[in-house]
Design a protein around this nucleic acid. Sequence first.
DNA 1: TATGAATGAGTGTTCATTCAT
DNA 2: TATGAATGAACACTCATTCAT
Lengths: 216, 216, 216, 216
Amino acid sequence: MPPSLPISRDSQSKLLHILRLSAQIFAQRGFQRASIRDISRATGVSLSGLYYYFESKQKLLYLIQKNAFTSILESLTQRLQSLHEPQARLHLLIQNHLEYFLAHPYETRVLSHEEDALDEPLRKEIATIKRNYYNQAREILEQVVAEVPGSNLNPRLAILTLFGMMNWVYQWHNPDLDPGAEELTNVIVGIFLHGVLPGAPEDTEFHMAELPAADS
Amino acid sequence: MPPSLPISRDSQSKLLHILRLSAQIFAQRGFQRASIRDISRATGVSLSGLYYYFESKQKLLYLIQKNAFTSILESLTQRLQSLHEPQARLHLLIQNHLEYFLAHPYETRVLSHEEDALDEPLRKEIATIKRNYYNQAREILEQVVAEVPGSNLNPRLAILTLFGMMNWVYQWHNPDLDPGAEELTNVIVGIFLHGVLPGAPEDTEFHMAELPAADS
Amino acid sequence: MPPSLPISRDSQSKLLHILRLSAQIFAQRGFQRASIRDISRATGVSLSGLYYYFESKQKLLYLIQKNAFTSILESLTQRLQSLHEPQARLHLLIQNHLEYFLAHPYETRVLSHEEDALDEPLRKEIATIKRNYYNQAREILEQVVAEVPGSNLNPRLAILTLFGMMNWVYQWHNPDLDPGAEELTNVIVGIFLHGVLPGAPEDTEFHMAELPAADS
Amino acid sequence: MPPSLPISRDSQSKLLHILRLSAQIFAQRGFQRASIRDISRATGVSLSGLYYYFESKQKLLYLIQKNAFTSILESLTQRLQSLHEPQARLHLLIQNHLEYFLAHPYETRVLSHEEDALDEPLRKEIATIKRNYYNQAREILEQVVAEVPGSNLNPRLAILTLFGMMNWVYQWHNPDLDPGAEELTNVIVGIFLHGVLPGAPEDTEFHMAELPAADS
DNA sequence: TATGAATGAGTGTTCATTCAT
DNA sequence: TATGAATGAACACTCATTCAT
């Protein structure tokens, strides 16, 4: 997390300040569209001065993404320590995720949207952290499902679907309109565990044959 | 002084060919990163020759997105005509969506990922079509929920969550590994309607107070 | 020699014009110091317009050097065809070299001075042509020496010394002051073959022991 | 307000260390290409720290060149004091030159290759030293020639040709392959005084009329 | 003596777009 | 319909140098 060169306390906190503003700019304009000049303007640091804090635009993006993921993972790990009940752990995973997302909307957008903007080898580094997170989530889910006798759930599809619900939030969440992390967590946990319909699922299943097919 | 959209049959089909290849390039490299030169290379049409078919890079993106949405909406509208049962209509919505997504992965990515790459006024035009689609989906959902007495579901959150599940698919779906549209539809419909757990939801609800809070 | 893209007669001759002016600028300011903007100014072609004719500054230097060498080598090969007497061939080699040097002082300076400014793999390509030329020169020299019975001359040292005499010319030759190619050739041929002293060499040799040594 | 040249013993020797490493870097990458950062890295001295030892990159180059020339000239002057025979003095000039060149290949390259990298007025200062050296060499040569009755040698051309032979050495000398200073001196003295051919020169002269002309 | 932090000027290069043909 | 030739604006990045400490 510290830049390759500087060590001082001031320098560190200035870097963090730059990362924060850069995340905002990348979120608003997109990584490719945003120019280092934009960041220079926003931070008040001269164009060349920025390069004292990061070696390249790519590396800047990398630092933002790594910082964000580390933040989420550390908080999750710490909070999970005291929880052992499977459903409680799943609830926490979702809540932790959404709390970060709603508290850091810019970093979130960069995380969710600019995954592919990184070139190798930085891309792989981030992918590794991500996979780590994904595996942890999947384990938690599998323990929830393990309690249900006779479930034939595909855990890969289930967890990716869950991530879809959560990660898409950055595309639509309006803080003036939509609920905060706590209530949003309850909604998503509710849908993920029990769906929007209560009661027996058996008689609501449809089969392709009954549906009209697309033309092409 | 070429027309904004060319008229001859040949010209039309060549435009479609260009749109297809452009979608692929935009999907693979991202809109900003991809250059018209990339498209020239891929299509074999000279750099300046391309401008006969579209007026600007923005307009090219617009054409791709509009074509894709139109395609999805037309197919949906047509297929819905013969279906009146609410849950069947919802199932069809999801299936129609996923069928297009898996059949046109490049266009899908451009649709989901390059929403904000358009500037006004083109952005607003696409947003209008999108809102149209969203409203239709929401109506279908509300009819499903209306059948359930005493549901306190927030339909905005529910439908956006559903779109999250579906739209995120382009980020992870691997045709060699993951099921096709039909089965995927069943999985998502299943989770959305009934969740990953069967049975009574009441006793599985958690409350924030029991969960550890994040540090910062 | 033609650029990768353009083919037309006009384009070709414009490229040659650019190469000529670029050689002058590289000669006067040095390759690294000279900027593409300098070349844009000198040629009247816009900064970006230049990149239609060459792909990079490196490639521009490469084109200049390759053109120059090709020119020298072609002229040499052609003129050597009708000459078979060894000394006459050596004389021609030197004259051909000097004629080009005095007629194209800018290209010459770029050739002699900017050898190492090229990066691989272009550097190697030029080196190959140069080695070709060097080998031809060495063969010619060896045939001259072969006629002398009992010569113990090191041909590598001899030919490199000869190239030293010739290639250094660009560092000092003043057209207002110094003789032209013909006379200069005679001088260099004279010194190289017979030295600045006439008569018997035997009694003028010195041995280290008689000379004072340097301090460090 | 550091002095233009530092005074302490330590400082002096550190400056010399910096000059040595800088010469190497300038030799290997070329003056313009080499950055002060390269020198900082090589010396371990911080970027700004270097500016205590020299005021600018130009001045650094100047110091290297001046040091080198002073070294050559001082050694030459001292060693010439005890020698009075003209040919012996010429031999010594060449040997002194080559000994320095082979012992200090980096400084040599900077001397021979980066002549024009200096801007005025530093350029003129070095040029003055150089002219000094050149004049001394020319005087020595003229005394050699004065002993030969009836010589019509152009001394300017002769001495510049000699410098060509010597100065070009840095372009090709390979310590693993080529002889050391002593033998190299003998070879160059031999060629310069007597040429590569022994015996009477009169009948080996060629005239332009007999040679084929170049095309353009 | 020495350095971390900063900067203005400049670099080579790319890009979407144009226009005469 | 199509293209070769051209351009202005912008971009990421590097550089020699400075200055407070």
